[in-house]
């Protein structure tokens, strides 16, 4: 009996674990759409490394925020405040630097403080007061947007030497034509994905997150620190939102109270497309990475097409969401049947 148990532990068998199906589905659909793009618009430069890296550059802020969102969704929650908090970060940096003349990096530190505090407060509201996550974070969203508008209703440009330097900083990839590069936002995105993956897969905290998402009551009966973990997850998500706001500020070099409206939907749908189950307990950072790429390849395709208008991207995203939730339903019900 012990022998088959050991053979099951080979790398291939471990990779074939059904719990990764959703991630594979995301990767396959991404490759499929990318191949279609390559076949249709290969001559226009769709296959170049530059186009591929642009997917990262243009969507790094969504991805950074999706790291925290993935963790929140794995615990079975949701956070609607991410876009507003990111926008607030942009306002803090822009107003603090341009109007008040504070160093932008001090503004960023201050934003991190506020973002994490707001996240922890929402987490506490959800966990201790039993307010539904949807409503608690909706309050957080209104609050952050309101503060944004109170600070200023105009778009403020950021003009600071070191900040501009950071925004311009890039690593060129040698020997590629046309010129391809990676900037600070992309590095931040990748680092956040790695940190998130490490936290989820290799730490006790990550185990607790999965356990709570699987069944909160069981987790608490097992003696896991449910309250603390959940509140910390929302705090971590606050940090991710602020970093996403920093990335966005570097990307557009300004702050505006209405920027990133509806970004929370992009972030949530990226995580869902990446295979994170909204019922909690299932999700991987690697899947989220591909979810972000998959969601961003559609606008890229539409840009390359040139005749289709941009709103088809919205419809495309809706169809993708439908497709992936459909796949999730089938996978979940199939595995439930297997268990029976």
């Amino acid at each position: 009996m012990s022998k088959p148990a050991r053979t099951r532990n080979t790398l291939l068998n471990r990779l074939m674990n059904p719990k990764f199906i959703m991630v594979y589905a995301t990767i396959v659909v991404f490759l499929l759409i990318y191949t279609i793009g390559a076949l249709l618009y290969g001559d226009k430069g769709f296959t170049t490394l530059r186009t591929f890296l642009n997917l990262f550059i243009d969507n790094a802020y969504v991805g950074i925020s999706a790291v925290g969102m993935t963790m929140v969704i794995i615990t079975g929650g949701i956070d609607l405040s991410v876009g507003a908090v990111a926008s607030l970060t942009g306002m803090f940096i822009a107003y603090g630097n341009t109007i008040l003349g504070i160093d932008p990096f001090i503004c960023i530190a201050f934003s991190i403080l506020i973002g994490v505090a707001l996240g922890l407060a929402m987490g506490a509201m959800i966990q201790y007061l039993k307010v539904p996550a949807f409503i608690a974070t909706l309050t957080g969203m209104f609050f952050a947007r309101g503060v944004c508008a109170l600070i200023s209703r105009e778009s403020i440009a950021i003009n600071h030497a070191a900040f501009n330097e950071l925004a311009k900083w890039r690593i060129k990839i040698p020997d590629v034509k046309p010129l391809a590069y990676v900037n600070f936002n992309v590095l931040l995105f990748i680092v956040m994905i790695l940190i998130g993956a490490y936290m989820l897969q290799a730490t006790r905290f990550g185990r607790n997150v999965y356990a709570i998402g699987g069944n909160e009551q069981s987790a608490s009966l097992m003696g896991l620190p449910v309250n603390r973990t959940k509140v910390l997850v929302y705090g971590f998500n606050g940090l991710c939102s602020v970093l996403a706001g920093v990335a966005y500020a570097l990307y557009v070099k300004s702050g505006w109270n209405l920027s990133l409206q509806g970004a929370e939907l992009d972030v949530i749908s990226s995580a869902v497309i990446g295979g994170t189950l909204l019922t909690g307990g299932v999700g991987y950072m690697f899947g989220t990475l591909f979810g972000v790429l998959l969601k961003s390849v559609i606008p890229a395709l539409i840009t390359f097409n040139g005749t289709l208008l941009s709103w088809w991207a919205k419809i495309g995203t809706g169809v993708l969401l439908l497709l992936f939730i459909g796949i999730q339903r089938i996978v979940v019900s199939a595995s439930a049947r297997k268990k029976l």
């Binding site: 939907l265 749908s269 939730i325």
Partner: peptide
């Protein structure tokens, strides 16, 4: 399909304006 209402209605929320 027993989808979670938030995500099921999110589809049309995103696609509707398109």
């Amino acid at each position: 399909w027993n989808m979670q209402p938030i995500i099921a209605t999110l589809i049309l929320m995103v696609a509707g304006r398109g």
